[in-house]
């Protein structure tokens, strides 16, 4: 499907979604509370069937965090980007690792690097960082480490 068709189909599924079409792919902004139900519709809807999550990450905008999910369909080869704004002080969103198994490790990475809490995640703990780094979130913009960080 082209971006226009995707947009009209997604508006049917989630009227509250807002769009940004400046990029190559359709960007869809959703509320964290809408995300679990919407995600499962994206995964299962026969005309969308977004079965391949090729990127999951987070951006720290200093005022808030944004979760970014890149989804693709192996059947139709269309791509979309889902974005969800999170409160920086208490970032929380439902896990999607039951829909896309790859999300499990990616969410663990985002959890330790940005401190986003994924509710209902089966095994939410540090992945890359060693013990003792809980709550330090090194990928946030305000993270300071005078010893290990070299600023140019």
């Amino acid at each position: 499907m082209q971006n226009e068709e995707l947009k009209s189909r997604i508006t049917e599924l989630l009227p509250a979604a807002t769009y940004d079409e400046s990029g190559e792919w359709l960007n869809i902004n959703v509320e964290p509370s809408d995300w679990p139900a919407f995600a499962s519709q994206l995964r299962t809807d026969a005309s969308l069937s977004f079965d391949y999550m090729f990127c999951l990450t987070c951006i720290d905008w200093k005022t808030h965090l944004t979760m970014v999910y890149h989804l693709s369909s192996t059947a139709f080869r269309h791509n979309i980007v889902i974005k969800s704004k999170l409160d920086r002080n208490k970032p929380e969103i439902r896990t999607v690792c039951t829909l896309w198994k790859t999300a499990e490790l990616h969410e663990r990475e985002v959890y330790e690097m940005f401190g986003v809490h994924f509710t209902d995640h089966p095994d939410l703990r540090l992945l890359i960082l060693p013990e003792g780094w809980e709550g330090k979130n090194p990928m946030r913009k305000d993270y300071e480490d005078p010893i290990n960080m070299i600023k140019l």
Binding site: F54, C55, T57, I59, D60, V68, H70, K101, T102, E104, L105, H106
Partner: peptide, 25 residues
């Protein structure tokens, strides 16, 4: 994945590495 704010350095950059996802399987 590059997020740019218009400056000379990326604001955020993400490398979606193939090995990371392959390992999860």
């Amino acid at each position: 994945y590059i997020v740019s704010e218009g400056g000379t350095t990326p604001y955020r950059i993400k490398f979606r590495s193939p090995g990371f996802s392959n390992l999860s399987a």
